[in-house]
């Protein structure tokens, strides 16, 4: 019913320059948005950066110039509080000019703190947790009816997995054998009150997904080569959905907040913002020299 128009780039190739340049720029944009009057979800956006950059620069068949092209791959950010991470990646990828992000948090700006489909590239509004994977079941079913190989990637938070609707969808997708459905879990191990395992434990997480009929891959969620390899190998089995458990660090990129629960939300005034930006650049230079 909806065939790929040919405008979308092929999956698997790398569209862009050195990955570290892209992730640096994305993190700078996230920090800038956290410097707005309303602040932003810093920690869970920083943990997402490599996952989303890899998806948008390599894995997804999407065209920044034609974000609504029929037949494109679908990405749903089910952990909607990572919106500034998504906005930053979309802007940096060219879906819209980066300067537009300056409107984040301003009255009537499309850039609300949870994904707004008025922003080019945002497929569905999310925010209340546990909604993305059921929607993904629908997108994957539609692809099946269309005899299309288009895929749907649903990026979930790990704390989000405490929502029962996630497992309703996981059970259905496993049972229906939806090979076009991919869940990516941002396993940064922290939720608002502390470690996920101290709230309502998720482990053994891989076994849980496996028992629901999913192929499980575990990967360092900050290693772009590893993420690409994992995403490119999907689906290992055309009749099974895949979950990529991406082990990440909340607040990644700012060592003084990494792995800390308090990184969840930040309203950065001028000085902490400058400190964050210079920290990011220093790390980039250090890595480039190594």
């Amino acid at each position: 019913m909806t065939e790929l128009t040919g405008t979308a780039p092929a999956a698997g190739a790398w569209h862009g320059g050195p990955p570290a340049e892209h992730t640096l720029r994305v993190r700078e944009l996230i920090v800038e948005m956290c410097g707005s009057a309303g602040g932003g979800h810093l920690g869970g956006s920083m943990s997402l950066v490599e996952i989303l950059v890899t998806l948008y620069r390599s894995t997804l068949r999407v065209d920044p110039r034609a974000p609504d092209a029929p037949g494109r791959d679908i990405l749903l950010l089910s952990k909607g509080h990572g919106a500034i991470g998504l906005y930053a990646v979309l802007a940096e990828r060219g879906f819209f000019p980066e300067e537009e992000l300056a409107a984040y948090g301003q009255p009537d700006s499309p850039f609300s703190a949870h994904p707004n489909p008025a922003v080019p590239g945002v497929e569905m509004p999310t925010g209340s947790l546990g909604h993305g994977l059921p929607q993904g079941v629908g997108f994957a079913l539609a692809a099946r009816f269309d005899n299309s190989d288009r895929r749907c990637f649903v990026v979930l938070g790990d704390g989000e997995l405490q929502e029962g609707s996630v497992w309703e969808a996981a059970m259905a997708a496993g049972s229906l054998g939806l090979g076009g459905l991919v869940a990516v879990v941002d396993r940064n191990t922290l939720q608002i009150t502390g470690p996920t395992e101290d709230a309502v434990g998720l482990e053994p997480l891989a076994d849980r997904w496996r028992s629901f009929g999913w192929t499980v891959r575990e990967v360092d969620g900050h290693d772009i080569d590893a993420l690409r390899a994992a995403f490119d190998a999907i689906p290992a089995d055309a009749d099974r959905p895949t979950v990529v458990i991406a082990h990440t660090v909340k607040g990644r990129g700012l060592p003084y907040i990494e792995g800390q629960t308090r990184s969840h939300f930040a309203r950065l005034t001028e000085r902490p913002k400058k400190r964050a930006l210079s920290t990011l650049r220093a790390q980039y230079r250090k890595a480039a020299q190594a």
Binding site: T2, P134, Q135, G138, F139, L141, E168, A169
Partner: peptide, 15 residues
Amino acid sequence: QNLMGAAAGLARSGR
């Protein structure tokens, strides 16, 4: 819940 969410995904795909 999955029923309604899946319906939304299908409808967004033209169904």
